[in-house]
Design a binder for these strands. Structure first.
Lengths: 362, 362
DNA sequence: TTGTACGCGTTATCAA
DNA sequence: TTGATAACGCGTACAA
């Protein structure tokens, strides 16, 4: 409250104040305050807070006691500026309302939190123009690594990322033209595999249920994998059904059943771009008295919990979302350690295996 | 003025040009670099980037051109330190693998992003000790507001938050002893309402399916609301079933059916603490040939999409997760504007109405 | 083991 | 409308 001691008050003789600094009333305690009360220099306080620095045990105790008493909370913004380490790992996801991305995020967070890193999340809403904005915002925060799902990036996004000098990790896909590191699997190959399995099982009139706008995305890769399998088997490759724009929901799957029965009524199997919409189809079929899989087989993608509990169980592609997060975290720590040691690491490509899970729906 | 040397042109291949032999080899461009190339002071560059500051249109154009050419990206860490505004809003959630919290988060993010704020997410895993750690980490980042779900905080968490001077918003509950602002509804009242509805509909032997460790949490509030309704109706209040620790899943719900049939086989209605586990019960009942609702009525909480698509549809409590996020965002902006204007705002309590949705499962 | 000097990259403040 | 100066709160580098 008392500002009578402020050194830069203009005095009555018209002498100009020397300092053009800012007024600083009632601020929260700084490291300097701790230092004064503990009779040490600020630098020693700084050291006492990092448990790898040499500080006498007694000194540290005294400092920690003061910190506790006055409720000092270190300012990581200042710390970041000085040390040039933000402590952030940025991750761009199309949506969080997807238990797989949520799992990947949780696993990643768990991994990097052990190393005092925090995640900075961005939502792209499955739109590359939004991804560009999100990436720009993230770069201003100087993250120590940037994680992105591969869904096609704008040229500007690619340029910004590559010019940043920050390690980039693309996940949930094996892009043909990766920006840098990769932790994922081939959506194309996985779709090819499950479609082939349906064909092996005797289905001959197969349809694909996908998203309306999927250019360059994982959804497109899944469609192409489906098409390749169908074509190689010499089957009809025209049965492509597009529901809502990504993310496609359970309800979208339910609604798609009508369109399917109308356009290609003799379809005997559907491969849906993700489990939730496949479940929606199953649910709607039961409602309409269409037997699954006798009248119509249904397969999904992702092995979400819903596919395990549905009746019948959902045939699907098993993806270990948790492992993607864990391995991404491991890679980030590895890259960080290497960078500290001054090493330069070549782009890593980590493959996360998938599996085909045959259940009652096919 | 003597620095008339032409700056390096950006290379078409994305290779970054480097200034040669200068004091700072290989550094990212700073504001000062932009200023020099645009023949202005750094302060003018700073102003040109804030569209509310007075800068001559011609000057701004020149500056933006330089920024684009050299690929300058402002450093928000430095900006934050200087301006004492981090641009962060912190939000602590028990889990992201919950479509309701994901919806709340998305809505909040959308709202605050319009005002150039970023969310900083923390996961508490439904544990108050973890929440404490997460809050400590967040406070170091100097967020401009902190959003928390109410699930019981440790005394230290409460103390840290209140000492911080940062606006706190508790969401998804109306706590008896709020820290500061609140955006939510009464879980107790909502549970009481849906349980009463079951009783009105003629069910007399009601069970509650909850989480194993729910002290002071929203889950506990839901249990208490159930118990109050049951007791007021003079019915058996001992049928409390505890599945796994939070978050309780679909599979936990499915597994709980066996325990229920064993312990209280004559139960005619179950109120489950959330929709996913209620769905798991429905699914398991169908599998076992137990008719829903004839043999057993089931109700959930939250109005998740799964409850709309299940067969039968799930009776539940409708909660507008999106509205909670939106209103929280609005409140944050309001508080921010007030703070800038120097006003002090009393603790706000925003109620988000819920609804009882009767469907086929009861 | 502790301290001193300085700078991290930006913006608030005042002056022109 | 623009510029000069001094912080913002901490950590690095080196000295003691």
């Amino acid at each position: 409250m008392s500002n009578s001691e402020k050194p830069d008050e203009p005095d009555a003789n018209g002498v100009k104040p020397r300092s053009r600094g800012r007024a600083r009333p009632n601020r929260r305690p700084r490291m300097e305050d701790v230092a004064r009360l503990a009779n040490v220099s600020p630098m020693t306080v700084s050291r006492a807070l990092r448990y790898d620095s040499p500080v006498a045990e007694e000194t540290r105790k005294r400092i920690l006691k003061v910190i506790d008493e006055i409720g000092y909370v270190p300012d990581q913004i200042a710390s970041g500026l000085s040390s040039q380490r933000s402590g952030f790992v940025a991750i761009c996801l199309p949506s969080l309302n997807n238990s797989h991305f949520a799992d990947t995020l949780s696993a990643l967070n768990r991994r990097i939190a052990e190393h005092d890193l925090q995640v900075l999340i961005g939502h792209t809403d499955y739109r590359s123009d939004k991804e560009e904005k999100v990436v720009e915002a993230m770069l201003r925060r100087r993250p120590e690594a940037i994680v992105l799902t591969y869904d096609g990036h704008t040229p500007r996004t690619r340029a910004l990322l590559q010019a940043s000098g920050i390690p980039i990790i693309e996940i949930w896909e094996q892009p043909k033209d990766p920006l840098d590191h990769v932790v994922g699997f081939s959506n194309h190959a996985a779709s090819y595999a499950i479609t082939s399995r349906l064909i092996q099982d005797g289905y001959t009139r197969l349809a694909f249920l996908g998203e309306a706008t999927d250019d360059g995305s994982r959804g497109a890769a899944r469609r192409e994998g489906f098409l390749q399998a169908v074509r190689e088997a010499g089957l009809d490759d025209t049965r492509l059904l597009y529901a809502a724009r990504a993310p496609i929901t359970m309800s979208d799957g339910a609604r798609a059943v009508a369109g399917l029965r109308e356009t290609w009524p003799d379809t005997d199997a559907v491969f849906a771009v993700s489990d939730p919409c496949a479940f929606g189809m199953i649910s709607e079929c039961l409602r309409l008295g269409i037997s699954v899989p006798d009248d119509l087989a249904i397969a999904g993608f992702g092995d979400f919990e819903i596919g395990r509990l549905s009746l019948p169980g959902l045939t699907t592609v098993g993806v270990d979302a948790d492992a993607i997060g864990r391995k991404t975290g491991d890679l980030i720590i590895e890259l960080r350690n290497a960078a500290r040691a001054g090493d330069i690491i070549a782009a890593q490509h980590v493959d996360v295996p998938i599996s085909i899970l045959k259940r009652g729906s096919s």
